[in-house]
């Protein structure tokens, strides 16, 4: 472990410990705000881990999130929450590996559009399955865990995600992902099994999104496909990460906090105008600052 990485991970852990006291300091409203911030920090970071490094634009975040949520919905009667959450991650990761194996050898545009519809696909499949076999359209969680438990779980996932991102960036695996993003064929001629690296990166990133879905699912007492496969979650993640700078470690984190707050404040009053603004911001950034805002601060602290 390099000194730099040790420093970053220590900082992430310290932030995690400090944030762990929030449930006893904040009002319910502020705590739920903090929860959304954490969720988007984790989603945007895990998205950047794969898509930021490789330039493979994945729009599948909501699919992984939804899969995780359904693992909780189905499993919580027999499994403890503490087990459902990692299981949600593992199943989402396995699904990503499967999908990735089928399509990741294709050009980036195919990958993007395929993942674009993936959430819909899974949502339709689950709706169909529930209607046909379980004869239901949604599920009521009978015994959801306490709000504090949920918060601490999400915090733990978020800390793990950001720390993993930092570790990946400093590792050979991270170098391989960056090589794929820079020039895939060149990386291959230097000995990188690009196919395996891409599948592993995609699955790892899906693991965190799935675990988050599983952890957050209990916030809805009634779980139905329409709400947990909400494409908005995935889109918002991409926008946040790209605007913050998906190739930096800190960019998506800061951007996630800022935009989750904005989103909570503005979305209720000016929902459409706010989202239009996000879209416009992305366009302007891609045209004039393709590395995102984080690329302006390419100092040591941003790159880890």
């Amino acid at each position: 472990m390099t000194a730099n990485l040790r420093y970053t991970i220590t900082a992430v852990l310290a932030a995690g410990v400090a944030l762990a006291f929030m449930p006893w300091l904040l009002s319910d409203f502020l705590l739920s705000l903090a929860l959304s911030c954490l969720m988007y920090v984790a989603l945007a970071s895990s998205w950047s881990m794969f898509s930021g490094a490789t330039n493979y634009l994945s729009l599948a975040t909501s699919a992984f999130f939804g899969i995780g949520a359904y693992v909780t919905a189905w499993g919580l009667e027999t499994l403890p929450y503490a087990l459902a959450v990692p299981l949600g991650g593992v199943i989402a990761g396995a699904f990503a590996a499967l999908v990735g194996a089928a399509v990741l050898h294709l050009r980036g545009a195919y990958f993007a559009v395929l993942t674009f519809g993936l959430g819909e696909l899974v949502r339709h499949s689950i709706t169909y399955f529930e209607k046909t076999y379980a004869r239901t359209v949604g599920r009521v969680l009978s015994d959801p865990p306490e709000a504090v438990t949920v918060y601490l779980t999400v915090l733990l996932i978020t800390v793990a995600t950001v720390a993993t991102c930092a570790a990946v960036r400093a590792s050979r695996f991270g170098l391989a992902l960056a090589g794929v993003g820079a020039d895939e064929e060149r990386a291959q001629t230097l000995g990188v099994n690009t196919r395996r690296v891409k599948i592993a990166g995609f699955a790892l990133s899906a693991f965190f999104a799935g675990a988050l879905g599983a952890a957050m699912a209990v916030r809805w007492t009634y779980i139905e496909p329409m709400s947990v496969f909400n494409p908005f979650i995935g889109f918002q993640t991409v926008l946040i990460a790209m605007i913050g700078g998906a190739q930096t470690l800190l960019g998506p984190v800061v951007s996630a906090v800022v935009f989750s707050l904005f989103s909570e404040l503005l979305r209720l009053q000016f929902p459409y105008a706010y989202l239009m603004l996000l879209g416009l911001l992305l366009i302007v950034l891609v045209l004039y600052l393709p590395g995102g805002i984080g690329s302006l601060f390419r100092g040591r602290w941003a790159r880890a």
Partner: peptide
Amino acid sequence: EARSLLVGFGLMYLVQNA
């Protein structure tokens, strides 16, 4: 290709919400 995908994505957001 990568950048136009992202711009298309931004446009989607912009136009749909408009």
